[in-house]
Design a protein around this nucleic acid. Structure first.
Length: 910
DNA sequence: TCCTCCCGCCAAGAG
DNA sequence: CTCTTGGCGGGAGGA
């Protein structure tokens, strides 16, 4: 903290001179981490800065985030008068120091922001000169400049699940500028995203953002291809042989498939947009293909763990590259690049596989696992589970899963783990094991456990929702056998943050305490958020038997968190789940669902479901905040939801991934039929959509999480909103008390609430809350959940509430804040500001919370939503802003050239 | 020392 | 030819 402060100050001081900064910061910060920008800006000497700033501002003004960097860049570029070389020369010569300083500043800001976003602004003002030195000291570390972080920032700009109608275009130049990096870096990110079809190239310098809607499908396809290619076998082969680079003979083993053809296929299937790469062109070796293959390896792996050396070997073979050591190194480098992006997407997580020889760098898949079956089985949990299990050959697991499905709440994790172990023991040589050696063994178990959990979760939710994994965290939490599983997982599998799953209701207080412990480890906002959510849920459950959690809301929360942050693991699933589930629900027929899921076209086609979902979940946050009317979804859902856990349930659930939570909750609590209003209504949705974005943004950045719990019983229709802030610091780990303790919650009138009068009570119990009409406090209120690792905050009242510590920081730069910690929470930060009009940068979505804050008085959902939309939703790319576009173009041009030459924003150094 | 992976040169491609 | 893409690998930060 201190350090951060200092750094901030430092940063600030230099900047201070520039007022614009502050302004920009406020706005910009949220969106993109502008840290880069700032850094650039800052770096410049004050004098220089001014001119630069101006230019920047002009350009960016529309967007608002004129990120300094951009301007700088533009400037440089813009100023044609200097040849690139000259520019470079100038820059480097002129101000290497300055640049460094600037960068450092920027970095610091980010970092600091995480913790002290709010302080940021203040500091800026306050800051003095000392900063410079510090900057130098702190100069952005490599980590700060890492591709992973950059990718997170990049992702934070766009909604994970954009509305189908909404077409978001990504201007590489703009992005590069806004993020303050060379375009070259953006290519790395975009290429990987493209491999997963999260984006597609539209034109030069222009990419279209698709979001995760089709991710499940893409993964499914990749998995299929991977299976066809027998990557699993290849991996097993390599692993068993324990080939070292040296040992490894390329070509030694034969691949089943023709590498080239396969590659082509990959692109084709997943990316219709892209014509398959031409035969041996550079593209054959493209990062896109590598990325797809890399993902395939995870998908076909039983353990979901892939070591880089194995992946590199396989890739080398396929690429037909000469198997020399340098190739291997190069491949590994690329894999790291890809891995960073995938990590940012919360699809994989870094782990180490311990083998006899030693530890090997590896990554574990933490993304959705079941997509393959997801389509079909939505309706039947058991069904969904089985297939996977079969594949994995973990009969034990299957059993467990089934049991679990039968009774989520009661599920005995221990047993499961034991079974898993048994299985492993019995089959030490299991072909699937990726890791060999003692270390590997343990890992395997852990991974299995993780897999198992995921499956269970998935199943419970209905595969699609794997993302929602209720179990995993819970398993850890599970009073019965928390330790074993957790320990294992913790190591290899999932890190709390990464974990997509939010445990929902699991158990009791104890569980909470356990979680807290876990969560506590993770400070990251995202993680926290997740944890918070989890904790909350349980707390709710424990505390109150009846809370109903609208899946959508949760979903959104999760999604945002996940997505936004690196950690967000569930997002994809959410997407998937949302789609499928939605479909299913709607159709109410699994088959239908299946079809849809499979056939679902990329975003547009999917629309109905997707849209809805997206809307829903997007709305979720808002909806949570604002009472919506019970949507159709509710109707569907409520009945199902209430009753069974296994059942698939509600669209809502689908949508979110929250299912698990919901289910659990339901199980424990009586569910009310009511689903939070969020979901459903189309009309509402419309409005909601933007909100959703907001939500996402929100999610990501900060951890604000809201849980909307509809209170079935106790609450008479009231919904309770719980928000979890990421940061737990304040609160003690909660331990036992969790339950009732102090779960902050807001009680909202049930679905129909037009206005959303919110009642919040510090303690959960509250279902009691007052009548629906109760008004929120005028002032913002923060609640913290003691039990949860993270503190939950509830915001009520017009003013934004922020927990200082909590993730949400009012501070201006969300980006900064978020990133450092997990993700950013551009949104969050924004929230404090409430709205930022369209800065392109802000991609983040405002959080519902924010709105709440803003509107002191209950507002109608729609109104609110609108507001959000307008204010928040404009993604930079998105669209709409002509200005932006224009700017982009200009910039892009400028930038592009400039890019190469200089990245340095140096501020324009003169 | 080894793992990571940033950085940016420079060439293939596209227009 | 210019500009966009992106392969590639040197070399440095970090642990």
């Amino acid at each position: 903290m201190e350090v951060n402060c200092l750094t901030l100050k430092d940063l600030i001081s230099p900047r201070q001179p520039r007022l614009d900064f502050a302004i920009e910061d406020g706005e910009n910060a949220q969106k993109e981490n502008i840290f880069v920008d700032r850094s650039r800006m800052a770096p410049k000497t004050p004098i220089k800065n001014e001119p630069i700033d101006l230019s920047k501002q002009k350009k960016f003004t529309p967007e608002r985030n004129p990120i300094t960097p951009v301007k700088l860049v533009d400037r440089q570029q813009a100023e044609p008068w200097t040849p690139t070389a000259n520019l470079k020369m100038l820059i480097s010569a002129a101000s290497p120091d300055i640049r460094d300083r600037e960068k450092k500043k920027g970095l610091f800001r980010r970092i600091e922001n995480k913790d002290d976003v709010f302080t940021d602004s203040l500091q800026l003002d306050v800051v003095g000169d000392s900063a410079v030195d510090e900057f130098e000291k702190q100069r952005p570390s490599r980590k700060q400049k890492s591709l992973g972080l950059l990718c997170q920032k990049f992702l934070a700009r766009y909604p994970s699940y954009p509305l189908s109608t909404e077409k978001t275009t990504i201007s590489l130049d703009e992005v590069a500028v806004s993020l303050g990096v060379e375009r070259r870096r953006i290519y790395d990110i975009v290429n990987v995203l493209e491999s997963l079809h999260l984006v597609s190239r539209v034109a030069k310098n222009q990419y279209g953002w698709h979001g995760r809607h089709s991710l499940p499908k893409t993964l499914r396809n990749l998995q299929r291809l991977g299976e066809e290619q027998k990557y699993e076998e290849q991996m097993a082969y390599l692993q068993q042989k324990e080939l070292d680079l040296m040992d490894y003979k390329f070509g030694e083993r034969k691949k089943d498939g023709d590498p080239d053809s396969q590659e082509q296929q990959l692109l084709d299937f997943s990316e219709p947009d892209y014509p398959s790469s031409s035969a041996n062109s550079r593209k054959d070796k493209s990062l896109r293909i590598m990325s797809q293959k890399f993902v395939m390896l995870f998908l076909v792996s039983k353990t979901k763990i892939v070591t880089l050396d194995v992946a590199a070997k396989i890739l080398i073979e396929e690429s037909q590259d000469t198997p020399d050591h340098s190739k291997f190194k190069t491949k590994v480098r690329r894999l790291y690049d890809i891995a960073n992006v995938l990590t940012s997407l919360a699809l994989i997580k870094k782990v180490h596989v311990t083998e006899e020889r030693g530890r090997k760098p590896a990554f574990k898949w933490i993304g959705p696992v079941d997509f393959s079956s997801s389509d079909e089985e939505l309706g039947d949990v058991s069904a969904s589970v089985l297939p996977e299990l079969k594949r994995e050959t973990y009969g034990q697991i299957q059993v467990c899963a089934k049991q679990k499905l039968a009774r989520h709440s009661s599920f005995n994790t221990v047993q499961a783990s034991e079974r898993i172990q048994r299985k492993v023991n019995s089959e030490p040589s299991s072909p699937y094991r990726e890791e060999q050696g003692s270390g590997g063994f343990s890992l395997e178990i852990g991974s299995l456990a993780a897999v198992y959990r995921q499956k269970i979760e998935d199943n419970s939710q209905g595969k699609a929702f794997a993302s929602k994994r209720v179990v995993p965290p819970s398993s850890g939490l599970d009073p019965v056998a928390p330790c074993p599983v957790l320990s294992v997982d913790s190591e290899y599998c999932v890190n709390p943050l990464a974990h997509p799953v939010f445990s929902v209701a699991q158990t009791d207080l104890q569980a909470f305490s356990v979680q807290n412990g876990l969560n506590g480890q993770v400070d990251i906002s995202l993680t926290s958020a997740a944890s918070a959510v989890e904790s909350l849920k349980p707390a709710l459950l424990a505390g109150q038997p009846l809370v109903y959690v609208p899946s959508a809301s949760l979903f959104m929360l999760y999604g945002s968190l996940q997505e936004g942050t690196v950690s967000g693991s569930g997002s994809e699933r959410d997407g998937r789940s949302s789609e499928d589930p939605a479909t299913v629900e709607l159709s109410s027929a699994p088959s239908a669902q299946k079809r849809l899921s499979e056939e679902r076209k990329p975003q547009e086609e999917e629309e109905p479901a997707t849209k809805r979902q997206s809307r829903e979940y997007e709305d979720g946050p808002l909806s949570l905040v604002m009472p919506k009317k019970p949507s159709d979804s509710m109707d569907l859902a409520s009945p199902k939801t209430m009753g069974n856990r296994a059942s698939v349930p509600l669209k809502d659930i689908h949508v979110n991934g929250q299912l698990p939570a919901t289910e659990e909750i339901l199980g424990k609590a009586t569910a009310n039929g009511c689903v939070s209003s969020e979901w459903g209504n189309p009309s509402r949705n419309t409005d909601v959509e933007k909100p959703s974005k907001e939500n996402e943004s929100t999610k990501e950045p900060s951890l604000l999480q809201y849980l909307c719990v509809q209170s079935p019983t106790g609450l008479n229709g009231f919904n309770v909103l719980l928000s979890g802030s990421q940061t737990p610091p304040t609160v003690g780990p909660s331990s036992g008390q969790l339950p009732s303790l102090s779960v902050p919650c807001m009680v909202l009138p049930s679905p129909s609430l037009g206005p959303f009068p919110v009642l919040y009570s510090p303690a959960i119990p509250g279902p009691v809350s007052s009548s629906p009409g109760a008004l929120p406090n005028t002032g913002p209120v923060n609640f913290s959940l003691p039990g949860l690792g993270s503190v939950a905050h509830l915001l009520v009242g017009p003013t934004a509430v922020v927990n200082p510590k909590s993730s949400t920081l009012p501070s201006a730069d969300p980006q900064l804040q978020g990133q450092p910690s997990l993700n950013l929470s551009p949104v969050m930060s924004r929230s404090h500001n409430v709205v930022q009009p369209e800065s392109p940068i802000y991609v983040g979505h405002p959080v519902s919370v924010v709105k709440l804050q803003q509107s002191p008085v209950p507002v109608t959902p729609k109104s609110i939503q609108h507001t959000h939309r307008e204010t928040f939703f404009k993604t930079p790319g998105s669209l709409g802003d002509p200005i932006l576009k224009r700017r982009e173009r200009n910039q892009s041009r400028n930038t592009s050239s400039a890019q190469r030459r200089l990245e340095i924003p140096s501020g324009g150094a003169d």
